[in-house]
Design a binder for these strands. Structure first.
Length: 899
RNA sequence: GCGGACGUGGCGAAACCGGUAGACGCAAGGGACUUAAAAUCCCUCGGCCAAAAGCCGUGCGGGUUCGAUCCCCGCCGUCCGCACCA
């Protein structure tokens, strides 16, 4: 149905206002407009469109099968931006796709005996239908799914390009290994050191894995953060800390040969190299500590079964930093002693300690308990003591001690011989200078080093449902890339999940291939890629999603990129965003794009949270099983079925386990997509969590009806013809125009800043003002000037809420007598000249406390303002006959009389 | 453990760059309309006080300032991330 076809009905209604339905039938209207948009292709985007581009993107969803309220919020926000920019004359790219590889499909396969592909594509179909029911202005012709060979073949090409460019490495790395299920476990699958499915104690295993060399870009990824001005400061800070640049010193400690004992002949028993960012605290050292995975620890363990047991105990904690660092500090003295670099008489014990990470620095430290909390916790277990070497300002060095809280602040060096009295910085410099000058075995004892916490990105996954890594292992030729003509390396379809391990590895034929180089029998790589790889370039693929010959067309990609506004959850603040920034740089190096920062503007939205409910037995109860009564301010909940009382619990993130989810389908069915979108945007600032409440969504529903009635009322007082602009406006018409244009200016500012909740409050204020103006009219239609003002205000109002409630807006647009779509019509121009008023209201304060108000002409000068202020009764009373000391006048705002 | 954020009425919140604290909405209470209900419309709504005047009030304790929700210092509480979840 085209908009033109609906004209007769609209005319009929305008001629007979009484015939217009009292209530807006969202169910019919929403379906009607979605169909009309789709048939007219309103949201189709052409790469060749000459208008300025605007790329708005929301993080694409994992196809779990059902959308949740978090999606509704995320996509509602993105759609507001897309629709607003479109109205502002931009050629908007607003695509959607599916982050479709990943573990849940394999878990479902194991549980339900379905194939991951079948499960995933079925989920995509149902989620697409759900998203479409939201009325999002998406270009569905650009839809992509990362699990589709038409997508991952290009990802394999990118991998090969990266390989050729030296951006790929093979290294050993540890994984959580479940000895019963014969599978690698994700950190989230390790619960209290045991596999989630088998319950077996998890081991750590070393596997040779594929890595992307993100650390090649550490410095660039860090310094470029300064240029990302439209990113939240907190995300930039999180990335800065994650990259973790530090300037420190590598120091070689000589091991006392007398302490080597049974380790004689083992490698690495001459010296121990450590990395420190605090060389200034060297005189506070109490011990050395090495990681359980340190080669020296392994060497020592070969001679000491108890140490071996200790190391294995450490490994059971798991591979996650959080687990390692929260575990109680434990160590094992391996008997070695090292010489203090500045005192050959001073020897320090060497421990293997569970809180030292092999991945950072050299996997070895010197421990200075007085100034590092972890070291202090450690010595407090082993009774090694703590000597403070940095004294806080204004503290007496003679009495300063450290017992349970380490001091990591600024201060002056003490107890440190030649460093005493220096600042921390000077002491660091002095230690570095002296140790650089000492030569041990042809090399200086210390060297300055910039270190990063950032590690290379391990992308190997021993799983089926991911993008195959396109290489072949040949006994003679080694690692051989799959020739590009053989891409894609497709996942075999005939796999089963009824036994443990990786289906690709145990597939009878898939991995057996001829070496592309020598032709001898060889085997395919059976690891697949981390799904973060899939999501690290999908935003590029959207610019040219059907390109069959290459991952991108660089010219097209460079036209659209960077994404102007990216919107998604804060949980992706580090990994996804950092990997995407790296990937863009890597793609640039290989000639696929010409930019290095993929997302110019980033917005991180808060979660959708909900009250939790439990019945008498403590079982979780879902919101749709509960009825809430609020009388006299007290809220009580009962089970709808039984009337049994229900306990209202704390508000928490919506999760299946707590049964506090709300199904978007049900909400859209009951209230309509517009209401759901409106409520998601109206209640809380978008970056903060929003609490889903039944009362809130009902309130939003009421507002949709109110706006509908208001627009119908406006149409009634305006009359059936769109009024022409009159020569002059009366007082009331002027006032209405002023209200409308002021509202428009504010609302567009707020949308621009993504402050949707404030924007909606402004729409309410505008609607309230219009509503009373219309209510004051008793004879319709009104005079020409008023009719014009009302019609103009009505158009503005509809435009203002159209990005949030697009279906209702189309319906209202039609009522106001327009052809075509409001979704396709330009944003009205706010006449900012209309907005300035002739008078200004000052707040009058005495000593900073409000005592009255004063309305004066805009052009009033300071002396006039001052004398009017002092003339106020309330001011005189508050001054209490005291003399005026000073009068502060803030232009157009405030007068403060200081007495 | 490390890192990051947040805290304002009964509730969600607003307050431009340090300048009227509580816009707007929800809930609640009162009223109108109605046979009744729903819907709709009007009024009240931070605390103390009968009211006016006034005083108190932005997690807590200090500080800077003519003036602090906003800046500084120190606490308390809540939430999030931590590299194989996506």
């Amino acid at each position: 149905m085209s908009a033109a076809n609906s004209r007769p009905a609209a005319f009929f209604m305008r001629d007979h206002p009484a015939m217009r339905p009292e209530r807006y039938n969202m169910r019919e209207a929403e379906a009607k407009w979605r169909k009309a948009w789709s048939e007219a292709g309103v949201f189709r985007t052409l790469n060749a469109d000459p208008r300025p581009k605007y790329y708005v993107l929301e993080m694409f969803p994992y196809p779990s099968g059902r959308i949740h309220m978090g999606h509704v919020r995320n996509y509602a926000m993105g759609d507001v931006v897309a629709r607003f920019r479109r109205a502002r004359g931009f050629n908007v790219l607003h695509p959607m796709g599916w982050d479709a590889f990943g573990m849940p499909a394999e878990n479902a396969a194991m549980k339900n005996n379905t194939h991951p592909a079948a499960w995933t594509y079925a989920n995509i179909d149902s989620m697409r239908a759900q998203l479409q029911s939201m009325g999002l202005s998406l270009d569905w012709s650009r839809e992509i799914a990362t699990c589709d060979p038409s997508y991952y073949r290009h990802q394999q090409k990118l991998f090969l390009d990266f390989l050729a460019a030296g951006l790929v490495a093979r290294k050993k790395s540890k994984v959580n290994w479940d000895p019963v299920d014969h599978t690698v476990l994700a950190n989230e699958q390790v619960i209290d050191g045991r596999g989630w499915r088998s319950g077996a104690v998890v081991e750590q295993r070393e596997l040779t894995q594929w890595f992307l060399r993100i650390t090649d870009f550490s410095e660039d990824l860090l310094s470029s953060l300064d240029r990302l001005e439209r990113w939240p400061e907190k995300v930039r800070l999180m990335q800065r800390n994650w990259i973790g640049r530090s300037e420190g010193l590598m120091v070689r400690f000589v091991i006392d040969p007398a302490s080597v004992g049974a380790l004689e002949g083992e490698p690495g028993t001459n010296e121990l190299e450590i990395y420190t960012t605090r060389p200034d605290t060297l005189f506070g050292a109490k011990f050395m500590a090495i990681a359980p995975d340190h080669p020296l620890a392994a060497a020592a363990a070969r001679h000491d079964p108890k140490l071996q047991a200790f190391i294995e105990e450490c490994r059971r904690v798991g591979t996650s930093v959080a687990a390692i660092e929260t575990a109680e500090k434990k160590g094992y003295d391996i008997g070695l002693r090292v010489f203090h670099p500045f005192d050959p008489e001073w020897r320090l014990p060497v421990y293997v300690a569970n809180f030292i990470l092999m991945d950072y620095g050299t996997g070895a430290i010197f421990g200075c308990p007085a100034h590092d909390q972890r070291d202090l916790d450690f010595v407090n277990v082993y009774g090694l003591g703590a000597t403070p070497v940095v004294c806080p300002p204004d503290v007496d060095p003679a009495t300063f001690t450290v017992n349970t809280v380490a001091y990591d602040g600024d201060g002056v060096m003490i107890n440190s011989r030649f460093l005493d009295g220096m600042t921390i910085e000077a002491a660091k410099e002095e230690v570095a200078r002296r140790l650089e000058a000492v030569t041990i075995g042809n090399a200086p004892q210390a060297r300055r080093q910039v270190n990063f916490k950032l590690r290379d990105w391990g992308i190997s996954r021993q799983r089926y449902w991911g993008c195959p890594i396109p290489v072949i292992h040949c006994e003679d030729c080694g690692v051989v890339p799959v020739p590009e003509t053989d891409l894609p390396v497709r996942l075999p379809e005939d796999v089963t999940f009824d036994q443990p391990g990786n289906p690709l590895d145990r597939h009878p034929t898939w991995k057996h291939v001829a070496c592309p180089r020598c032709g001898k029998p060889a085997r395919r790589e059976t690891d697949t890629m981390d799904t973060f790889v899939d999501s690290s370039w999908y935003f590029v693929r959207f610019t040219d999603p059907t390109n069959e010959t290459a991952p991108t067309d660089p010219a097209v990609a460079n036209h659209w990129l960077p994404v102007d506004q990216y919107i998604g959850g804060i949980e992706h603040a580090i990994l996804h965003l950092l990997y995407s920034r790296f990937f863009t740089r890597a793609m640039r190096k290989c000639g696929h794009v010409g930019i290095d920062e993929p997302f110019a503007g980033l917005f991180t939205q808060g979660m959708v949270v909900h009250e939790t409910y439990r019945d008498g037995c403590g079982q979780w109860v879902a919101p749709n099983e509960v009825q809430i009564d609020a009388e006299g301010g007290a809220r009580r909940a009962i089970m709808i079925d039984t009337g049994e009382p229900v306990e209202i619990g704390p508000v928490e993130k919506m999760s299946k386990s707590k049964h506090n989810t709300v199904d978007p389908d049900e909400i859209i069915e009951t209230y309509g997509a517009d209401t759901a979108r409106w409520f998601m945007l109206s209640d809380s600032p978008p970056e903060r969590d929003v609490i889903w409440t039944e009362a809130g969504v009902q309130g939003a529903y009421k507002q949709t009806q109110r706006l509908w009635r208001l627009v119908c009322e406006i149409e009634r007082v305006v009359g059936p013809e769109r009024p022409a602009r009159p020569q002059a406006f009366g007082e009331e018409a002027k006032r209405i125009r002023q209200v409308a244009h002021a509202a428009l200016a504010r609302i567009e500012d707020e949308i621009e800043k993504l402050r949707f909740n404030v924007c909606i409050a402004q729409i309410y204020e505008f609607a309230n003002a219009l509503s009373s103006a219309v209510g004051a009219i008793d004879a319709a239609p009104v005079a020409d000037d008023l009719a014009y003002a009302f019609a103009e205000a009505g158009d503005i109002l509809v435009h203002c809420f159209a990005p949030m409630m697009p279906h209702l807006a189309e319906e209202c647009w039609e009522v106001l007598g327009h052809d075509g779509f409001v979704s396709g019509s330009p944003w009205p121009e706010a006449d900012r000249g209309l907005i300035v008023s002739d008078s200004v209201t000052y707040v009058v304060q005495v000593n900073g406390k409000k005592r009255g108000e004063l309305t004066l002409p805009r052009e009033a000068g300071n002396p006039a303002i001052e004398s009017s202020a002092l003339a106020l009764d309330a001011v005189a009373r508050a001054m209490d006959n005291k003399p005026v000391r000073k009068v502060i006048i803030v232009p157009n705002r405030i007068v403060n009389v200081v007495v």
